Simulated scan of single mutants.
Amino acid sequence: MITTQEIYPRFTKSLLHPKYWLTWMGIGVWYILILLPYPIIYQLGKGLGLLIPKIMYKRQETARQNLKLCFPDMPKQEREKMLRDNFISTGVAIFETGMAWFWSDKRIKKHSTIIGDNYIQQMLKEGKGVLLLGIHFLTLELGGRILGMVHPGVGVYRPNDNKVMDYVQLKGRLKSNKYMIGRYNTKGMIRALKNGELVWYAPDHDYGPKNSVFAPFFAVHKAATTVGTTILVKLGKPAIIPFTPKRGADGKYTVSVSSPLKNYPLDDDVAAATFMNKAIENEILKAPQQYMWLHRRFKTRPEGDDSLYSDKVQND
């Protein structure tokens, strides 16, 4: 049954307003490009990725600083290589998003495989909800489509400011989800988990000081980490299952599903955040070049602490 809590795409005449014509044209070009053979798509993405640092300098500095903060013992030359590879992945990700939203199931299956799917199958078979940790890999959109074709779930959703992109995004994501739900709709997420649904959830970004605690993340000892995970686990009682969507050098995508996390510390928010961040670290290390390092993960600092970012990226 559809409720007011569930979000679906709705086409209206307002989406045809002239102010959206350029958006529609861009989507049309994007759609045509993702119909090309995959090797060409990859090369286009690689070229775009190498161009991004030249036109988005602040983002490059953010990513560089994140890598330095998280991997201080890594030789600078190695970090710079990872940074370059990360921007290539960023460019490819733009096309992978189109692949996730527009490719047929048949074409997706040709380029993908799932490992560890039995963990999800077992939990759902037992009627237990699954909180699926959709960590912010650049391949996440495509990974969600790959896994969602087998296990459609409930997507946690942030609307796009552009109404046309919001419509296209919803249409695309509903190819692998039963319905979408607002990211602040905690009650709706808990209800879905109690009903034995699979709910996509990404607790790895800095969501600000509200409802957050500071816990270690890689080499950063105080990273703002949401307490929302504890609320969902305490009230929804789901299995917590991380997964990693990884792009291979051969153009194949492997979605690796990890075993359910055990012994989640419900009674201590800092211990819970530390536990979750460690689980996220383990997944990131499976494909660190493909993680979203462009996000200012350490923007929120404890009161009185200095910013971890230089002035040139403060307005990033």
Results as ranks from 00 to 15, higher is better:
52 I>E: 02
52 I>C: 06
53 P>I: 11
53 P>D: 12
54 K>W: 13
54 K>M: 11
55 I>R: 04
57 Y>T: 15
60 Q>K: 15
60 Q>N: 14
63 A>S: 12
63 A>D: 07
63 A>M: 12
64 R>W: 09
65 Q>K: 15
65 Q>W: 08
65 Q>L: 07
66 N>R: 13
66 N>E: 14
68 K>N: 05
69 L>A: 06
69 L>V: 00
69 L>M: 08
69 L>H: 02
69 L>N: 05
69 L>T: 01
73 D>F: 04
75 P>W: 09
75 P>F: 11
75 P>R: 10
76 K>D: 15
77 Q>N: 13
77 Q>R: 15
78 E>Q: 13
81 K>E: 15
81 K>F: 01
82 M>Y: 05
82 M>T: 09
83 L>S: 07
84 R>L: 11
87 F>Y: 12
89 S>V: 04
90 T>I: 02
90 T>N: 04
90 T>F: 07
90 T>Y: 03
90 T>V: 09
91 G>L: 10
91 G>M: 07
94 I>Y: 05
96 E>M: 00
97 T>R: 03
97 T>C: 00
98 G>D: 08
99 M>E: 03
100 A>R: 07
100 A>P: 09
100 A>V: 05
100 A>M: 01
101 W>S: 04
102 F>S: 03
102 F>H: 01
103 W>S: 01
105 D>W: 01
106 K>F: 06
106 K>P: 00
107 R>E: 12
109 K>D: 07
109 K>R: 07
110 K>Q: 07
111 H>G: 00
111 H>F: 12
112 S>V: 00
112 S>F: 04
112 S>I: 08
112 S>N: 00
113 T>W: 05
113 T>R: 14
114 I>Q: 04
114 I>L: 05
115 I>L: 13
115 I>T: 11
116 G>H: 05
116 G>V: 07
117 D>A: 14
118 N>F: 12
118 N>S: 14
119 Y>S: 06
120 I>V: 11
120 I>N: 11
120 I>S: 04
121 Q>P: 00
121 Q>L: 10
122 Q>Y: 12
123 M>L: 08
124 L>F: 09
125 K>G: 15
126 E>F: 04
130 V>D: 03
131 L>H: 04
131 L>S: 02
133 L>V: 01
134 G>F: 03
134 G>D: 04
134 G>E: 07
134 G>R: 03
